[in-house]
Write a protein that binds this DNA or RNA. Sequence first.
DNA 1: GGTGAAACTTGGGACAG
DNA 2: CTGTCCCAAGTTTCACC
Lengths: 166, 166
Amino acid sequence: MATSKLDEIDRHILSELQSDGRMTNVALAEKVGISAPPCLRRVRALEDAGYIKGYHADVDARELGFEVQVFAMVGLNSQAESDLAAFEQRCRDWSLVRECHMLNGEIDFILKCVAPDLSSFQSFLTGQLLTARNVASVKTSLVIRVAKDDPGVPFDVLEARLAKTA
Amino acid sequence: MATSKLDEIDRHILSELQSDGRMTNVALAEKVGISAPPCLRRVRALEDAGYIKGYHADVDARELGFEVQVFAMVGLNSQAESDLAAFEQRCRDWSLVRECHMLNGEIDFILKCVAPDLSSFQSFLTGQLLTARNVASVKTSLVIRVAKDDPGVPFDVLEARLAKTA
DNA sequence: GGTGAAACTTGGGACAG
DNA sequence: CTGTCCCAAGTTTCACC
């Protein structure tokens, strides 16, 4: 497993940076119980190895005027790899689409979209998504409210798992 | 609109911090074209006003050993507010569940879940989610691959919108 | 993994437009 | 009220053990 390369301190670093990405290196070093220079070396190594893909401020979409969040379930006519890739590329080009996941089962893709209001989402839906080549069906569901929206992964699950195999 | 309190520099700051949350204040100040002290004051004000909810390292779930991502569509028996709230609280307590969104339409909730492997997800599904009080139906879809997973909001949409009304 | 030291960043105070 | 200049305290990031 890929985690076997990481020791407990590395996992602790990832966990802390996931919950507070702007923590200073000295505060992080203190939390994980080592001094600052080796802590920074570990962080750089985790970044270089791809365990940390980036750092992002978590901005409040609603406060910023994005009142509408929508999940769109998309079915395609052709599931040939080149057609799947073409649809994925189109999703990357649409900035309203924040996430695009290919799924198993009857739905081919689920898209998480964000828009300033319903009418601008509707114009995206009818003008872009529904008319895109190869799109067979789109079912949309408006988000009424968000009960939980945690970034990243549950480190407690990882630790529980490692404790079992140890 | 809530964005009217923000000027172009504030939006630029949010946009930069969304794409790189660990940028130093001097680098940020240079990017948005003001000097460091007022830039820092703006960042603090944006944090205090709730536009910035936090900062997070974006860790690679698969590299860390979370091989399985699943979307679960959940239907409840009762949609009374107290029953909805009870289910949402249960989702917050399950660390495998990273996101829980209440939707309109036939599905009541969509959950984004992450797990180390299929069997640990299955044991969560059968042991926790399906047996939870008030849960009527659960349809799950495995994520085959992720074509796009951008955090936050599309600032280009916001700018286009503001340009129109200006 | 730790230590010390140099360069840089942060974040405050005083002040101008 | 927002920006600029400056400075002390704290932080990052070397080279070396």
